[in-house]
């Protein structure tokens, strides 16, 4: 039985940082509690203090001003429903819509999903392909860390005990650009990803891939951006429906992707299956992005 724990609700970022500074690593930040409460019940956490941040109003907003700025307390349901996010960040909206059930989505927050640093964090791959940066507020001010560098290991992030993750900044889709998040689960909903892959691809006027971002989850200790595979995609000109030739063209990217991941056997799936689906996800993501850009262009032509 864990010892009694203090539950301190804070109303502002300053108050949260002060509380975290006071208790250091004895404190555990809690927002929606969808991960924290389960870990606490399983005795995986035994903090002296819960610093409850759900009441910090200024962290609940999503704003689009050039780039997208998401407060740490934006919920998964908000990400899935917000028209601005659905158009500018469709992969993120789609990923958030696949997290848990409605109840979980309604209270689980973006900041929590990132700080929990599950290998299967659904919001991570779409944010990684959007070149996201996290904002950490500490007693000595603001620190910005690229999301790619934020994940240090399984359930381990670059956040100091006295810092609060306050927000995330991400680049929206540009012209001739499309993105997708493909999640593999066993059943039709409420699944922890067996594997997930996000891709954001830019195409030039000839349909050649001009820029690429690829990120995966559930195939290693942390969500991961896969730069070598991105490079291998540059200069490819995927046709509409990719037959076996499509794989040949993607061979280098597939090899780079396979080389970058380290999946394991666990309760949800096998390492072999995860390795088997990754190339398929990569190819599908290229097909989907290509089709989306084509559709977008033809729509532009019509209007």
């Amino acid at each position: 039985m864990p010892a009694a724990v203090e539950f301190r609700s804070v109303r502002s970022t300053e108050e949260a940082v002060a509380s975290l500074s006071e208790h250091g690593s004895d404190a555990c930040v809690i927002a929606g509690g969808t991960d924290v409460m389960m870990q606490y019940a399983r005795h995986e956490l035994s903090p002296a203090v819960f610093v409850h941040i759900e009441g910090i109003k200024e962290l609940t907003n999503a704003q689009r001003d050039g780039s997208l700025r998401l407060g740490a307390l934006v919920t998964h349901r908000h990400l899935a429903d917000d028209p601005v996010i659905r158009t500018g960040h469709p992969a993120l909206a789609e990923a958030a819509a696949t997290v848990g059930g409605w109840q979980t989505q309604g209270v689980g927050t973006l900041g929590g999903n990132l700080c929990n640093a599950s290998p299967a964090a659904d919001t991570a791959p779409p944010l990684l392909v959007a070149d996201a940066t996290v904002e950490l507020c500490g007693p000595r001010g603001i620190r910005r860390v690229p999301l790619e560098e934020f994940f240090l290991g399984r359930r381990h992030v670059d956040r100091r005990p006295e810092e609060l993750l306050t927000g995330v900044e991400a680049a929206p889709l540009g012209p001739r650009q499309a993105e997708v998040y493909l999640k593999v689960g066993r059943r039709g909903g409420m699944v922890v990803a067996v594997a997930g892959l996000a891709a954001r691809l830019s195409f030039d006027e000839q349909g050649v891939i001009a820029a690429a971002r690829l990120a995966v989850c559930s195939v290693g200790p942390t969500p991961l951006r896969v730069r070598p595979a991105e490079e291998a995609l540059l200069g490819l000109c995927p046709s509409g429906r990719m037959t076996d030739d499509g794989y040949t063209a993607l061979e280098e990217a597939i090899a780079a992707l396979s080389g970058a991941v380290s999946p394991i056997d666990d309760v949800r799936s096998s390492a072999a299956y995860r390795r088997a689906v990754l190339p398929r996800l990569l190819r599908r993501s290229v097909e989907v992005c290509r089709a989306a850009v084509r559709a977008g262009i033809s729509q532009d032509d019509l209007s």
Binding site: R186, R241, T243, D244, G246, Y247, S269, S270, A272, Y273, A276, V277, P279, R280, R283
Partner: peptide
């Protein structure tokens, strides 16, 4: 799903 993918054969071989 593993068994189904295995039955479908090597990547892409029996797709479509």
């Amino acid at each position: 799903p593993e068994a189904i993918l295995e039955a479908l054969g090597p990547l892409g071989a029996s797709e479509h």
